[in-house]
Design a protein around this nucleic acid. Sequence first.
DNA 1: AACAATAATGAGAATGATTATCATTCGCAA
DNA 2: TTGCGAATGATAATCATTCTCATTATTGTT
Lengths: 147, 147
Amino acid sequence: MSQSLDLKSAGLKSTLPRLKVLSLFESGNECHLSAEDVYKKLLAGGEDIGLATVYRVLTQFEQAGLLIRHHFQGDKSVFELNQGKHHDHIVCLQCGVVEEFYDATIESRQKKAAADRGFAMHDHSLYIYADCTKLKCPNNPFKKSLP
Amino acid sequence: MSQSLDLKSAGLKSTLPRLKVLSLFESGNECHLSAEDVYKKLLAGGEDIGLATVYRVLTQFEQAGLLIRHHFQGDKSVFELNQGKHHDHIVCLQCGVVEEFYDATIESRQKKAAADRGFAMHDHSLYIYADCTKLKCPNNPFKKSLP
DNA sequence: AACAATAATGAGAATGATTATCATTCGCAA
DNA sequence: TTGCGAATGATAATCATTCTCATTATTGTT
Ligand SMILES: [Mn+2]
Ligand SMILES: [Mn+2]
Ligand SMILES: [Zn+2]
Ligand SMILES: [Zn+2]
C-alpha cells in the first residue's frame, strides 16, 4: 500500500479514483498523458471513473507536486510523473513522440538571463518541436492521437 | 499604402479589417496581444470589426509569417509582430509584464540537443516565468488583464 | 463494527476560447 | 461598371476544462 502513503504524505485522502490515476502514471512507461488519455486508458482497463474526477485529480496531483503539467503545442495539457529530475522536451511534429533532455548550460543561462534583467525566475518551459526523421515514428504508441 | 503591399506580398487581399489589425501591431509598442485584446482595442479606437474576423486574420497573419503566436501560461494565444529577430520571453507572474531576450548559447545548445538525438529542430518555445520584483509592475499596461 | 462529520465523486450543466456556418458585402480584374 | 470569388460578421457549434450539487466514500471515533 505504498501509493496510499504517497497520497497521505501529499495531504490527500487515499481514494479509489486517486489510486487508479496514480497507478496509471507509476506503472506505465507512457509518460505524457492528457486528461482525456487518462480517462480513456482507465475505462479501457476496466476501471470506472468520471471525467470530472480525472481533471480534478490531475490538478490536485500537480499542486501536490506528484505530477508536472506541460503545455505542448496544441490546446490540451499533458501530465507526467514528477520524478524529481527536471528536464525539457523534444516533441516530434510528425508522430508526437516525446524525448526528454537536460542541458545544464541552458538551465544556468536561463536563470542568468532573468537575473540580469531584474527578474527572479520561478519556473520555465522549453519545448523543442522537431522531426524525428522517421527514426522513431513507426513504433510510437502516441502516433494515432496526434492533431 | 505600404501596409497594403505587405499584405499583397503575403498573398493576402488588402481588406479593411486586415489593415486595421496590421496597423494595431505596427503602430503600437504594446507588442503581445490576444485576440480579445485586438478586438477590444479596435472597438475602443472607434474601428468596427467582428471577433470572428479577428481570429481569422490573426491565424492568417501567423501562417503568412507576419505575426508570431505564443502560448504563455494560461489558455489564450498571444501574438506579436514578426520583426525577423528571434527572441524568447520572460513573463512576470505578478503583473504580466513581458520582457524579451536572446541568448546565442541557449539557441545553439537547443539545436545541438535535438541533433544529438536524431531530431531536426523545426521550432522551439522558451518561456521564463518570473517575478519582476516590483521593478516594473506599477506601470505595466497589461496589469489589469491578468488571470 | 457501526456512526457521524466531512471530503470526494460523477453526471451533467456551464464556461471561455476558438472555429465553423452561411447569408451578405467587398475587392479587384476585366 | 459589372461580376465573381473571396472576405466579413452575427451566430451557432465545438472543445477542453471547470462548476454544481445530489450522492457516496473515507476516516477518526464510539
Ligand atoms: Mn529546463
Ligand atoms: Mn529561442
Ligand atoms: Zn516522429
Ligand atoms: Zn511584475
